[in-house]
Nucleic acid binder design. Structure first.
Length: 686
RNA sequence: GGUCCGGUAGCUCAGUUGGUUAGAGCAGGGGACUCAUAAUCCCUUGGUCGGGGGUUCGAGUCCCUCCCGGACUACCA
């Protein structure tokens, strides 16, 4: 097997929010694949970067009254920290807002110009006069021209599903300023992709560049008709790179984002002295992109077209994965299943998620589901019960003697596992890690009965059987080590721990072919704690408590957008009450209050006991039926709204002197109301 | 609406170019063991492979049709 040179990328995370467990599907899938290739002895490099340009960043920086550069630097630091703690290791992690990227954009742009692919045309767009910016579709809301539903997004109606352009909205409003935008015309630059139609047809439909379902999708969706021009410029103001030969216009973020792959490589080459052309302009180098299905067309049509035109290597393969669902549903902030990487790390070991995703991922584009029960079962049964247990039940018997000098008879177990290694490698190579994990666990299922049959715990009581004891444990630990090698791409920490236990670092896949003999064995230490369901629930609770800062959690990577959930269920379940007068309303004295104490009531099934402060030393004791939805710890310190003049009521556990205001049907579906920033305890709600 | 992908034991999934009584893990039931992180081992209960029709000596596997679920629908990031 000769060493391959392999360049790998993951989609660039957008610098507008933190990494969450949906993104991690992609970064972990890629990291596992890269680690596998490196373990196999190939020259494999993993490049990524933050995606930093676009209107969303500009708007957010403006809202936060700071420079875009400061915003994206902070985001990038957070991303890199999260990746590092999940053991996702890049050979270079750059930024699209770098000089390397600016230079490469200019160079590639020049090629596209020279190839005659650029044309200019006017585009009519809504313009927010007050914010002095053009508005992307999602920054406009208004009344649907078809069904007249109010407050609908700028591109399609969430009620009737009708598609339209923002300008067609009745009463359009800018989401930025709330003002009514006006239609303005501006010159945009377009790439005439149709000129590359034949090339793209051939490239997408031949070879193994794409998964079959993706090639088929492109053929049916895009390639069956003329490809539309791609609008790749945006007029000022825009956070991005100004187009050198078109002052006042900026490259659209999707033009410079994929070039970020190349720019990150360039940075690495400059740092290490590698030859750039060997990586991006050599037919000997494989290029693999890992992306989510939402950005398929950018990577399978635009991007190959750009590379081809600019004289760069084309992707060897674009690996496309599906989204993450949790408990069979889209990730949801209100349900606490929209879990940030940081929140996960506060409660759980990254190894769990690495293994869990590995056991679910295949080469298909299907979504994968994280069920909490399955997560616990897989981690505890597979990783701890089957795998780590092999070492844990045998290592200490040979702590003093080390491994036998000669590998003992083992009924062919080692040889079999060595042989299956090829099949496991094929599965990894094909990104079918779920198959790889199944094969590995099947090997663990052969190893545990071996120990069962040979009873080392009985042998150790017979001095005459000392050699047998050592032999049995030598077999067990070698079988364990084989599995650790096969799992090393997924569980690098476990591989390192195994290396320490057996005094021989795991550095190569081929180490699984030869048993270790005659070497010392270190004192066994716990390798991985079992996961407990309560840790998962604590994580979910913390996610719930993290209030959504804004409605935007999309990103260039494995984004999973949450859609507005404005159905009629809630209203149907609880119809509007009879009309009341203003005087009726003012009888109820609603006040902002701070939760200063919160505790469980031991015998109560639904209640939490709260102490609310109305400021100035005035407090009220309230029993609230929110136990299923909130943990006491997450309530202390937060502001709520309470009914302050409700008649006190004697309850079984004490007197309740008010109510906290919440919505929802009850049980776990209870949502406390919070005032916006600035409110202070004691203020009346009018 | 259109296009695509799925529907195999309670759950998550394997089922190679159609070929013997449809498999695994988990969960459930019974037993064993005690070295191990209430781990492990043995035995075991579950399926007319979404419905119907067809091709074939033979179909979970091919064709048609219907039902159900999901995804996507570029000039949004």
């Amino acid at each position: 097997m000769s060493a391959r040179r392999i360049l790998v990328t993951s989609a660039l995370p957008y610098a507008n929010g933190p990494i969450h467990i949906g993104h991690l599907v992609e970064y972990l899938q890629t990291d596992i694949w890269v680690r596998f290739q490196k373990l196999r002895g190939h020259e494999c490099r993993y490049f990524c970067a933050d995606d930093t340009h676009g209107t969303a960043i500009m708007i957010r920086a403006r809202e936060e009254s700071r420079r875009e550069e400061d915003l994206i630097a902070e985001m990038q630091a957070g991303h890199e920290k999260d990746f590092a703690e999940f053991d996702i290791v890049f050979d270079n992690y750059g930024s699209t807002h770098s000089e390397e990227n600016r230079a490469l954009c200019g160079e590639i742009w020049q090629s596209i110009r020279e190839a005659g692919l650029v044309k200019e045309a006017d585009v009519e767009q809504l313009y927010d006069v007050e914010a002095s910016t053009f508005l992307a579709d999602r920054f406009v809301r208004g009344t649907c021209p078809k069904c007249k539903a109010t407050d609908q997004p700028g591109d399609n109606c969430s009620v009737c599903g009708h598609h339209y352009s923002p300008a067609e909205l009745v009463y359009p409003k800018s989401a930025l300023s709330g003002t009514t935008p006006e239609v303005r015309s501006a010159g945009h630059l377009f790439i005439e992709l149709e000129q590359l139609h034949e090339f793209l047809e051939t490239w997408t439909q031949s070879g193994d560049h794409l998964q079959p379902e993706i090639a088929n999708y492109l053929k049916g969706h895009f390639l069956g008709e003329p490809l539309r021009d791609w609008d790749i410029s945006r007029p000022a103001p825009y956070f991005g790179f100004e187009i050198p030969d078109s002052p006042g216009n900026y490259w659209y973020v999707w033009f410079d984002a994929p070039i970020g792959y190349v720019a990150s490589t360039r940075q690495w080459c400059d740092r290490t002295g590698e030859n750039f052309d060997d990586w991006w302009k050599s037919s000997d180098t494989e290029i693999h992109h890992f992306i989510g299905k939402d950005i398929t067309y950018f990577h399978t049509l635009f991007w190959p077209g750009m590379l081809k035109t600019a004289g760069y290597s084309l992707p060897t393969k674009v690996h496309i994965h599906g989204f993450l669902t949790v408990g069979g549903e889209k990730m949801s902030k209100s349900k606490g299943t929209f879990v940030n990487a940081r929140t996960y790390l506060n409660h759980l070991d990254p190894n769990y998620l690495r293994y869990f995703y590995a056991s679910k991922l295949s080469a298909k584009v299907d979504d994968i589901d994280l069920s909490l029960e399955e997560f616990v079962a897989k981690v505890n049964t597979d990783l701890v019960g089957k795998f780590v247990n092999l070492a844990s039940r045998s290592a200490k018997f040979v702590g003093s003697t080390g491994l036998s000098a000669k590998y003992p008879e083992d009924d062919g177990l080692f040889a079999h596992a060595a042989q299956v290694g090829d099949e496991i490698a094929n599965a990894y190579e094909a990104c079918d890690t779920s198959r790889a994990m199944r094969l590995i666990m099947a090997l663990a299922d052969r190893a545990n009965p071996y120990i069962e049959e040979n009873k080392p715990w009985a042998l150790r009581k017979e001095p005459a059987e000392a050699q047998r004891l050592q032999d049995v444990c030598t077999v067990a630990l070698n079988l364990f080590r084989q599995l650790a090698i096969y799992l090393a791409p997924v569980l690098p920490q476990l591989a390192a721990q195994t290396g320490e236990l057996l005094q021989e670092p795991i550095t190569s896949w081929d180490q699984a072919k030869t048993p270790l003999t005659g070497t010392p064995v270190a004192k066994f230490q716990h390798m991985l704690r079992r996961v407990e369901e309560k840790d998962l629930h604590a994580m979910i609770e913390e996610s719930k408590a993290e209030l959504p800062a804004d409605g935007d959690e999309s990103a260039t990577g494995a984004s999973t957008s949450t859609s507005d959930n404005d159905g009629d269920d809630a209203l149907a379940a609880e119809p509007l009450a009879e009309e009341c007068t203003f005087d009726d309303f003012t009888k109820v004295d609603l006040r902002v209050a701070r939760v200063v104490e919160a505790e469980h009531v031991p015998e109560a099934h639904k209640l939490l006991k709260l102490k609310l402060s109305l400021g100035g030393g005035v407090t009220k004791q309230v029993f609230a039926g929110i136990k299923a939805a909130y943990e006491p710890e997450q309530l202390v310190g937060r502001l709520v709204v309470c009914v302050a003049n409700l008649a006190p009521r004697e309850m079984r556990f004490g007197v309740s002197e008010g109510m906290v205001i919440a919505s929802g049907p009850g049980g776990e579906e209870v949502f406390l109301l919070s005032p916006d920033d600035g409110a202070v305890p004691g203020q009346r709600v009018h």
